[in-house]
């Protein structure tokens, strides 16, 4: 029974990672850039959600929407200002820029509002626990899991069934050829960043609801873990990010359950190293053409 409970703990932790990893993997799939600022967009999303709940007095879903829209705009701005001028530069230059953007957002937020933590109001979504076979599942973790699954399906739909999705896949496959075919590459990349960042915003609000506490540096560790999750599932592959996130959450919970709670973060990165050595393309990494 205890093992089952730990599995449930792991899945609810993992669904947060999965939610962040979806955006990571999408951006990587299109521009081959590891957007380290993604974790900080997640943080900004959490704060925007918080302020629209407390200051504008809105409910959960309107706040979620506002946060997603603002983060989408922020994502596009980041891409246009910081990454676009470097599109033909070396990948390491873009990577370093991404780290710079990440620090800029973190300390910009601290400059504007200080470093003190904020607590999400607890009465937006009833926090009841459901007893199932002696295992306690909180309604909030079910909500987060549900949100990630729905968003993943939606993403798959956008990428595979819509015109913009087709454009994304084309740009991902060959940017120059796509341009020759009359696809507006700049708009397609912006759309990718917008969707990815909106997902990060949603994850931020969900995180705030579930864990209550938000602060300006909250994006760093979940961002890195989501990166591990994305690589674990195969970076650039949408279902891979989902599975990678859940798997990582379960691994971490089981490590803590075995009495090594202080090793938990270490193990997450050991997983990254192992996967890079033995299966660099990730668990879902066979199907190269489906990258998006």
């Amino acid at each position: 029974m205890e093992f089952l409970q730990q599995l449930v703990n792991g899945v609810s932790l993992g669904s947060i990672y999965a939610l962040i990893a979806l955006g990571y993997t999408m951006v990587y799939g299109i521009v081959k850039l590891i957007n380290f600022a993604h974790g900080d967009v997640f943080m900004v999303g959490a704060f925007i959600g918080f302020y629209s709940i407390t200051i504008l007095d809105l409910g959960f879903f309107p706040s979620l929407l506002i946060s997603m829209v603002t983060c989408a705009i922020l994502g596009v701005l980041i891409e246009r200002i910081a990454y676009k001028p470097l599109r033909n530069a070396t990948r390491i230059a873009a990577l370093i820029t991404a780290i710079g953007v990440s620090l800029l957002i973190e300390y910009g937020v601290i400059y504007v509002r200080g470093a003190q933590p904020e607590a999400y109001p607890g009465d937006l979504i009833p926090a009841t626990s459901i007893d199932f076979l002696g295992v306690k599942v909180s309604s909030q973790s079910l909500m987060i899991l549900g949100t990630s699954v729905v968003l993943m399906v939606l993403l798959q739909f956008i990428v595979h069934k819509t015109k913009i999705g087709k454009a994304m896949r084309a740009v991902s496959y060959d940017m120059d050829a796509a341009r020759l075919m009359g696809i507006n590459v700049n708009n397609t990349i912006s759309a990718t960043f917008a969707i990815g960042s909106a997902l990060a915003g949603a994850a931020g609000v969900a995180f705030g609801m579930y864990y209550t506490k938000i602060e300006p540096l909250m994006g760093i560790i979940p961002g890195l873990k989501a990166f591990v999750a994305a690589v674990l599932g195969g970076i650039g592959i949408i279902p891979g990010a989902m599975v990678g996130g859940l798997l990582l959450g379960v691994i971490e919970s089981l490590v803590s359950a075995a009495g090594f709670s202080l090793w938990r973060d270490g193990v997450a990165f050991v997983v990254l190293i192992l996967i890079l050595i033995f299966r660099p393309a990730g668990l879902f990494g066979k199907n190269v053409r489906e990258k998006v």
């Binding site: 409970q5 932790l13 540096l217 560790i221 709670s261 202080l262």
Partner: peptide
């Protein structure tokens, strides 16, 4: 006896151990 480090946010795993 369980331990965590500052800035952790998810304690469900160690709490499940304690509950047992």
């Amino acid at each position: 006896e369980e331990a965590y480090v500052a800035k952790d946010t998810d304690f469900n795993a160690i709490l499940t151990n304690i509950k047992a």
